[in-house]
């Protein structure tokens, strides 16, 4: 049964995504989609203490168990446990989630100046490896449930680079 949703901003600051994730409307939506637990890794972004307690698990009226924390040295464990990951569009987080073959919704931070993250998100969305959206379209995107029918991301092929370099160096 689908249980846990992980929202992660990595090492960045993404106030709008954290605010959206801690809003009652999104939590109700996640609950109605069948999820029972929500983990919010909010990094440098503040999280309002009214919606969630800043430390341990709290049960809200939405029926969702919410855990929040700023950062962990490795998110891998939480990613492995999650059934749905809602992530910022950093390539590190994206790759880590894709490697674990998780349902992935990527939220582009439109406030970033050099926004090549949008390009990466769009390109991977086009190939159906993930769903890419913005904070304002997040709820609509979740409702559309496109994340339920994604393609598995191919495992890393390290022979491509080694073959290239071997040929170049003459091995």
């Amino acid at each position: 049964m689908p249980g846990t949703v992980l929202v992660t901003v990595g090492s960045t600051q993404f106030d709008k995504l954290v605010a959206a994730a801690s809003s009652p409307s999104l939590q109700h939506l996640l609950n109605s989609l069948g999820y029972s637990h929500l983990i919010i890794q909010h990094g440098k972004s503040p999280i309002s203490s009214t919606t969630t307690s800043t430390t341990d698990s709290t049960s809200l009226e939405s029926g969702l168990q919410v855990i929040t924390y700023t950062y962990k040295s490795s998110l891998r464990e939480d990613m492995e446990e999650a059934d749905l990951i809602i992530s910022h569009a950093g390539s590190g987080s994206i790759l880590e989630a894709l490697r674990l073959n998780k349902k992935l919704v990527v939220v582009v931070n439109e406030d970033l100046m050099d926004n090549h993250q949008q390009e990466l998100g769009d390109a991977l969305h086009e190939q159906h490896y993930l769903v890419c959206c913005t904070v304002s379209t997040l709820e609509k995107t979740l409702l559309a449930k496109e994340y339920e029918s994604l393609e598995p991301f191919p495992q890393p092929d390290t022979t491509r680079f080694s073959n290239f370099l071997d040929a170049r160096m003459g091995f």
């Binding site: 950093g90 390539s91 790759l95 090549h116 993250q117 390009e119 990466l120 769009d122 390109a123 680079f161 370099l165 170049r168 160096m169």
Partner: peptide, 14 residues
């Protein structure tokens, strides 16, 4: 040395 640069997976169009 042969100078080899590998652009990041994050760079799609630029």
């Amino acid at each position: 040395p042969d100078l080899v640069f590998v652009e990041s997976f994050a760079r799609v169009k630029t």
